[in-house]
Design a protein around this nucleic acid. Structure first.
Lengths: 203, 203
DNA sequence: AACTGTAGTAATCGACTGATAACATGTCAA
DNA sequence: TTGACATGTTATCAGTCGATTACTACAGTT
């Protein structure tokens, strides 16, 4: 006789489960901000119980810290992957690498959110360290001048704003949304639009 | 005989009290984000009771919406004030107008925070409308090209990041903080630093 | 002086949330 | 096989927060 189907998550090595939760947490934190998400939402998204999330990471804050640290890692990893090639073209390749990260749900929003939390003692430290790592990569490994680095990161922050505001939903209907998207993604507007949710929330 | 000093706030016209609360709310929301601040903190900062804040504005959400709407108003007001003069120099003047707004506590952080809340139905609408107003001002009244507008706003978003991360506290100690501040405020680093709190929270 | 609207507070409630404790079950080496 | 550790859950708590209710007191009008 078939036993009533298990209410518990299928067994998995803790390390794998952690990774799975981190992925889910990135999506949820990215969609609802750090303070705005509950550990229970993260748990549901990962398919485990809320107390288990807390036990695996200690506190919600520690979980978020791992999430943003992992996001900055990921960012640099993608940038580094496009280093080889024509130096003249590096800026464009890195820009593409950045927007390509839109497919990994929450990744960019989580980074954006972290930059607003510099006032939090622990989180602030990690966020500043993340920014510092990115900046030094761009300067030292990518070889950008300070002015080029400023320009590149500024553009990234504007992209975060576009994502956070859900501006893609207004493309074509609203002048400013249309213009800013055209200006930021000269030949990739449709691709970006397909990667992002409309003003309706899901993602 | 002198009566025990009043525990209640000195009487004031409701319109004035609203303005006072909006100012306090801007500072608190700016320091701790929308979700992260309580109506009680806003009330204390404004010197009134928590229920009174709620009664004057209906809900916390409506209060925040008034706060960000007012912040976008203020932004455009300052930009418009520097319109007269050499068009060649307008970009620089508007940049200065932006950083000058750092003296109004919470103003810039609140705008930054609003750009992360596009997923919230009501707040998202107001935030997108605010962005749209700024963009159209820059394009139509300031006469910037789409590319100039993109560059200008991107720089603004990077400044928001610097503020949110509390990077000014690391100036001189940390290479990336030093470089990005020098790049963003070529001849106003000290002024900006004096306007901002260190990594320690107050402001 | 009494009436009426306005400005403001204290008390309290219900819902939510992060964390803890206690318990259950699967896995694997000896 | 057994025992010990690892994986995971249910139950529950203590604190927090936005909102509601009911009350107090002041100010201006007639």
């Amino acid at each position: 006789m078939t036993v009533e189907s298990v209410p518990t998550a299928p067994r998995m090595k803790a390390a794998d489960r952690r990774e799975l939760i981190l992925e889910a947490a990135t999506a949820v934190f990215g969609a609802k901000t750090y303070v705005g998400t509950t550990t229970d939402e993260v748990a549901r998204a990962a398919g485990v119980s809320q107390p288990y999330v807390v036990r695996l990471f200690g506190t919600k804050e520690k979980l978020f810290i791992e999430v943003i640290d992992r996001a900055y890692d990921r960012l640099i990893e993608e940038f580094r992957a496009v280093l080889p090639g024509d130096p003249e073209d590096l800026g464009r390749r890195m820009g593409t690498a950045y927007t390509d990260l839109l497919v990994e749900r929450g990744m960019l929003p989580v980074v954006a959110n972290s930059t607003a939390l510099g006032g939090e003692p622990e989180i602030g430290r990690v966020a500043r360290a993340g920014f510092s790592r990115i900046w030094r990569f761009i300067r030292d490994e990518a070889g950008f001048s300070p002015e080029q680095a400023r320009e590149f990161i500024a553009t990234g922050m504007l992209i975060n704003t576009i994502v956070g505001l859900r501006l893609t939903g207004d493309y074509g209907d609203e002048v400013s949304a249309t213009e800013v998207l055209d200006a930021c993604f000269p030949d990739a507007v449709e691709k970006v639009r397909s990667l992002l949710p409309a003003a309706g929330e899901p993602w």
